[in-house]
Nucleic acid binder design. Sequence first.
DNA 1: GTGGTTTGTCATAAC
DNA 2: ACGTTATGACAAACC
Length: 795
Amino acid sequence: MLYLKKYFTEGLIQFTILLSLIGVRVDVDTYLNNQLPPLREIILGPSSAYTQAQFHNLRNTLDGYGIHPKSVDLDRFFTTRRLLNQVRQLDRISVPTPELNTWLVHRDSETVVSAGSHSSPTITLDNGAGLDNANSPDATPAMRGGSGAPESTYNLNAAESTLGAVASEENQEQGRNGGGDLTKEDIDLIDILWRQDIDLGAGREVFNYSNRQKETEEEKPSSQENKNGTEQERWRNGVNSQGAQPVDGETGESIPEQLPALGSQTSLSLQECLRLLEATFPFGQESEFPAPVVATETSVSNEDIPSTSQGLLTQLSQAEPQLDLEQQWQDIMAIMELQTMDANAALAQNSSSVVSVSNGTPESNNSNFVHATRSTPINQDVSLHQATLPSCSQDFPQMFTPQFDTGSITPRPTMLRLASGNSSNINSTFGATNLTGVFLPHMNSSSNITTTPILPDPFSVLLEESMLDEISLLDLAMEEGFSQAQASQLEDELDSDSGLSLDSGHSPASPSSSETSCSSAASSSSTSATFSEEGAVGYSTDSEVAAPEAEDGATGGYQPGFSKLCRMSYQDPSQFHNLPQLDNISHNHTYNLPLSSAFSDRPELPLSTAKKSIRDKQSSKLQQHQDLLDKHASRDERRARAMKIPFSNEKIINLPVEEFNELLAKHHLSEAQLALIRDIRRRGKNKMAAQNCRKRKLDTIINLEQNVQELRRDKARLLKEKMEFIRSIRQMKQKMHGLYQEVFTQLRDEEGRPYPPNEYSLQYGSDGSVLIMPRSMANAEQNRKPEKKQKDKKK
DNA sequence: GTGGTTTGTCATAAC
DNA sequence: ACGTTATGACAAACC
């Protein structure tokens, strides 16, 4: 049933998309909001086994909101939501034609041959599609708008692979269309041009998508084959030819005039670009539109500096840095956290940020430059990866490679370099991400850091810390107006404060405890606050759930944990099939997914004989999948098969008791079979309970961690306030002292002689009166007062 | 080979 | 009493 539902869901959504394409408005919301149980259930699916007591109300928690926030099935839920969002956005897409050119230009920039971009720097991204749908079908037609290839209108592959959806017939049909646009001559031409690009210095490794392509083939062998074999071949060879088309093969100069004439090639290019995107970023959310944005940016740069930037690009593209997988996952998660961005804001940011990072030439930036400072370049950054890099794992680092701002910056080997001109953007970009810790040092070095409301905490706290560093506590305490007792008291307090830091040992940069007194206290407090920034808040991988905590960085020593969570929270296996880096991870992460949806269900279509070898490869891969299926089938599944249990383990486990009993009654089963079934049910439920329990445990830890960090921030803030109070008290005391001296020097006795300050002093009465008293008397009185107080205390 | 991690399973308590 | 859930503990598989 789940199987059927899934199939129906995908098909329904795709059908809806098609209807929308031909102008029929399909309002899914109506169906969903009208509380029509069957459709709701079909589309959104029942909550997972992770929902507490869900077996009892399996059909009552269908809108997703009923899913337990800790449910592992949130992944599927969000996937479904994403699909629905895509559908809902269909009638709101308004991506201007120039986007297409932008794409092409971008490909050129990759090949290091810059194509002139005449595209408008502003790309209107429907935000709903924005972060959520870049990989989505909506994006495709929009970007193809200017391709002049009306017959190939749609490419659902992105959505398919992203969502792990079963390839639909529409999908395959569209794939065929897309591939069919390319004639053999076109391909040859493309290949020639591409070789010219290679000769011109375009690194072949730039196009090395072969691994991912293999993965993609595994995922959707049939659709892939149906698109076109030659295309596949070129992909295998790492050839990405479309980028070469709009480029003069000899000079490497861009030839924008050719773009409109490209026709079918253009559409292919877009398809490939999309597939590239899809392969690069298996998560639907990340492989969003931004790519075109960056492309535009690059192209603008190229326009401005046509010749130099190209050579520069060559070097840059060849010097792609590698980051380790953990960091990259972190980056991915950071982007996911940004998904919750407001739609319109993102739209504006997308459009405005395009130029802001492109290069420093103001004339090219013109009006859009105005918005640059408040733009959020995250999208374009991501897209830059997606379009440029062979693997998603290199996405984020790529943002900081020289390609990022080719026009204005000379290439440097450092990956995390930030141009000061971009710093504000980057601030807003990463403030809410987990990258804070990573980029922090660079941030500090860049001149133009502005703290935006988006990222209040990391940087504000840092500022606080720096302020705290500036304030030497004991200096203050020891200063005039402060008694030694007060100072020591303050010191004690600070020591006790710093003693509160739970795990300052986290940091490799943990200050040595040998430092004494105030400076030590201040530094320890500041470091602890820093850790609170770098700490494990990256744990909030359930970004949709714990988004508020996204401000904290996830670097530090928590990357392993983060990756775990990452996998736990977004472990739709179908998505991970696109990640070659994860190939060797053979854990079975398919928790609640039926095996059928996890591995099989790739429709087989007739294959051309020319592609027989490919088919063989793929069929062998399918066979491997089947073997894997058998191999990875749980013991219970194998037992059930051996005992010829007539229904699925999934049913056995997930059916409500009544239906389960009915099921048992319907079939005549032996005692052994019944026992096995009950065992399977018990174990299955327990298995999910264990998963649930572990996740909950983890979440508890995360929450505690976040609480600790929050408390640390509070502590830093209170400490800062305390310092301010102390300072203001000191100032008041100084002022008071000055006034005292002034008044005293003006006092005269009856004979007009001044009172010697060493013999007399001013005493303040409780009623505001001021008396001049001999010091001896004043001292005696002061001595009496403490006695009195002591007496009072004794009383 | 060892150690850490992930996952499944069992036993048990609690609801 | 029965079914389900929660959780500690253990073991197997994997890296």
